[in-house]
Deep mutational scan, measured.
Amino acid sequence: MGFKLLSKLLVYLTASIMAIASPLAFSVDSSGEYPTVSEIPVGEVRLYQIADGVWSHIATQSFDGAVYPSNGLIVRDGDELLLIDTAWGAKNTAALLAEIEKQIGLPVTRAVSTHFHDDRVGGVDVLRAAGVATYASPSTRRLAEVEGNEIPTHSLEGLSSSGDAVRFGPVELFYPGAAHSTDNLIVYVPSASVLYGGCAIYELSRTSAGNVADADLAEWPTSIERIQQHYPEAQFVIPGHGLPGGLDLLKHTTNVVKAHTNRSVVE
């Protein structure tokens, strides 16, 4: 069995187990497998329904001669939608809004960016022009300005110390501490036991640490421990890039980060 097929099978099995364990909360999309990078042309966006009122959005972007996937989250909030992270750029984010209108038909009224990198804030200006209120932590807003990236308009308070959590509509926002970046936030959907790890969490097929220019490698494993301790009931975990899975993604990420750190020390 090929690795790609095995990865998709694991996603399907995880979703099936969740649907059985929580039949009222989960209505997993039966329309197909989780979209992969090879299936999404740059400039297009796919939506994948995880649970009743919960979707991931998947886009792709060219970077350094390669094409990478990027995940975000959409959560229903009454007759409105909360968006977590842009679709990595203005063109993708405009396509995301169009796809949401086509498939869901509810307005996106608020959006949260989970850290300051372009795959999370690139497209904020498109959201703002569409009347979406954009939010991020003060740290993310400051770092985005320093980096020359787009800056969300509103500040999220109460997320300055490791372990801080605040309720934001249908989700809980959690600051686990520094990891992929010093400002990275985690998003949890309690009604569906869905954990969105953003770039602080890796997919299972990833074996290298990737972009760690703004990471705190020493603190990252401790931050992941905080996530595990705060959300032990999480059933569906979405990484910032690639295929979702279960809580095993947290341990896998820790292993990859520690291996990278150990290699760096040896070198």
Rank of each mutant, 00 (worst) to 15 (best):
G210P: 11
D79T: 10
G72C: 01
L73H: 02
E99L: 14
A136I: 02
D64R: 09
A178S: 13
H117T: 00
E219M: 07
R141L: 07
K251Y: 15
V112C: 03
P107Y: 15
L143G: 12
D216F: 12
R142L: 10
H115S: 00
V265C: 06
G122K: 15
V194S: 04
E145Q: 07
L9C: 05
F168D: 01
G197Y: 02
D164M: 12
Q103D: 15
G43V: 09
G240R: 03
P244N: 09
K91C: 14
P239Y: 02
R142D: 11
L249Y: 03
E172T: 15
R142K: 10
D164A: 14
E157D: 13
A59E: 08
S70M: 10
K258C: 10
F63R: 05
A144S: 08
W55M: 04
A25R: 06
G32Y: 08
A98R: 10
V75C: 03
R128D: 05
D85N: 13
A111D: 04
S56Q: 04
I227D: 02
I100Y: 02
V54I: 06
A21N: 10
S27V: 07
A209I: 05
H230P: 03
R263L: 07
A15S: 11
D77C: 07
G245H: 14
T134R: 02
R167Q: 05
G158Q: 12
Q49E: 08
G105E: 06
D29V: 11
Y48V: 09
G177Y: 00
E233M: 10
A259L: 07
L204R: 13
S30Y: 06
R128P: 03
P152C: 03
T153V: 11
S27W: 07
D118F: 15
V75Y: 02
S113R: 03
A179T: 04
V146K: 06
L82D: 04
P221G: 11
G43K: 14
I238R: 01
F236M: 11
L24D: 07
D164E: 14
Y231L: 13
E101F: 13
Q103H: 13
N262T: 11
A59C: 06
S30M: 11
A15V: 13
T86H: 00
A87E: 01
R110W: 15
A130D: 12
E150G: 11
H230D: 13
Q61L: 07
A90Y: 13
P138Q: 12
K91M: 15
Y231C: 05
G242N: 02
N184D: 03
T93Y: 00
R142I: 13
I224H: 00
I104Q: 03
E147N: 10
A21D: 12
Y175L: 13
P221V: 14
L143E: 08
H260D: 11
R110N: 12
L250F: 07
S137V: 10
V42D: 14
T153N: 07
V189I: 04
P170T: 06
V54P: 01
D64C: 03
V265R: 08
P244M: 14
Q49T: 07
G240F: 00
F63I: 07
L106Q: 10
S264T: 10
K91L: 14
S30P: 05
A95S: 09
P41T: 05
T36K: 12
T109I: 11
V187G: 06
E267G: 11
L173C: 02
Q235G: 08
S27A: 08
F236C: 04
K8Y: 15
Y196P: 01
R128I: 12
A133P: 08
V42C: 07
G245V: 01
Y175A: 13
Y196L: 14
L96H: 01
S31V: 04
A15R: 06
A215Y: 14
S7C: 08
V171M: 15
D183M: 00
A90W: 13
R76W: 08
T86N: 01
D164C: 04
S56C: 07
E157S: 13
A213Q: 13
E225I: 07
H57W: 01
R263F: 04
D248N: 05
L97G: 03
Y175N: 06
G43M: 10
N262I: 08
G123H: 02
I227S: 07
S161N: 13
S7G: 04
E150W: 09
G148N: 13
H154V: 09
I84N: 00
G65I: 10
A19H: 02
E233A: 08
V257P: 01
D248H: 06
V124M: 09
A87K: 00
P239D: 02
T109E: 12
R263Q: 10
G245Q: 05
S7K: 15
S38I: 12
G78M: 08
F168M: 12
L143R: 10
N92V: 04
I186C: 03
L156D: 02
G158V: 14
E150C: 02
K102D: 15
V126S: 14
M18V: 05
E44K: 10
G65P: 06
E157P: 15
L10M: 09
I238P: 02
A25H: 12
I20S: 09
S22G: 10
P221N: 15
L97T: 05
V171Q: 01
S162V: 14
T93E: 00
A130S: 09
I20E: 05
I20T: 06
P107F: 15
P239F: 00
